[in-house]
Amino acid sequence: MNTPSSLNHPIVEQSFTLIDQEIGQHNLTLLEYQIARRVIHSTADFEFINLLKFSPNSIDIGVKALRNQTPIITDVTMVRQGIVNLVAKTFNNPIITAIENVTRTLPGKTRTETGLLECSQQYPHGIYVIGNAPTALLALCQQIKEKKFKPSLIIGVPVGFVSVLESKKMLAQIDIPQIRAEGRKGGSPVAAAIVNALLILAWENKI
């Protein structure tokens, strides 16, 4: 299952080999596993082999969107920092960080939530990557339900306790291409790992 890539450091490839040996059999497709394996490499948490969920054709859709240089909208700077180097080496997609995109204050909403709502108007077909802000994910899902915008893909992996389970449940119920992590686990490293895995799949022309 280990697929060498010039974009991967040899130590990463060695880690992948060790992960393959420890996981053994699993129920993911080959492409899903390549994404899950990178998440496990970033977190050292093997539970993600079961926590990650993929809507039909979400990987194909994400790969095509990246190749088309679709803007990537991240909720926080840490996610941006985790993908910026590989984006620059591949398709050079614009990366917009929602928390830095705030031009106004909305009562009762966090800065990240406000920034993402503004991004949904500016980049309605973007790839949205949520690693930390469950309230922002809830707001995005509501916008989609109200047919106010339709992103190419949502990567929904917020981490924590408040509104995290609710946001992931709402995402699972909407008809939009998505990759999400069930339960409370997630975070910036998980979000960045998923984007980076998609970038490598797209760059290697595996799909």
Rank of each mutant, 00 (worst) to 15 (best):
R104P: 08
R104I: 09
R104L: 09
T105V: 13
T105S: 13
L106T: 13
G108T: 10
K109W: 00
K109I: 00
K109S: 05
T110Y: 01
R111N: 09
R111T: 04
R111G: 06
T112D: 02
E113F: 00
T114I: 07
G115V: 02
G115Y: 00
L116Y: 11
E118A: 14
C119F: 08
C119D: 10
C119T: 03
S120V: 00
S120G: 04
Q121E: 14
Q121W: 01
Q122N: 15
Y123E: 07
Y123Q: 12
P124C: 13
H125I: 04
G126P: 06
Y128K: 10
Y128Q: 03
Y128M: 05
V129K: 07
I130Q: 04
G131C: 12
G131S: 07
G131P: 02
N132C: 11
A133M: 05
A133L: 09
A133V: 08
P134Q: 06
P134A: 02
P134E: 04
T135A: 10
T135I: 12
T135V: 06
L138N: 12
L138A: 02
L138M: 13
L138V: 00
L138Y: 01
A139K: 12
C141T: 13
Q142S: 12
Q142M: 12
Q143A: 15
Q143H: 09
Q143V: 08
Q143T: 14
Q143K: 14
I144G: 03
K145Q: 14
E146F: 07
E146Y: 03
K147L: 15
K147F: 15
K147P: 02
K148C: 14
F149E: 03
K150Y: 13
S152T: 09
L153T: 08
I154A: 11
I155D: 03
V157Y: 03
P158L: 07
P158C: 05
V159S: 05
G160R: 07
G160Q: 06
F161A: 11
S163I: 00
S163Q: 13
S163K: 15
S163L: 11
V164N: 11
V164Y: 05
V164T: 04
E166Y: 10
S167D: 08
S167N: 03
S167M: 04
K168Y: 01
M170S: 10
M170G: 04
L171I: 00
L171E: 12
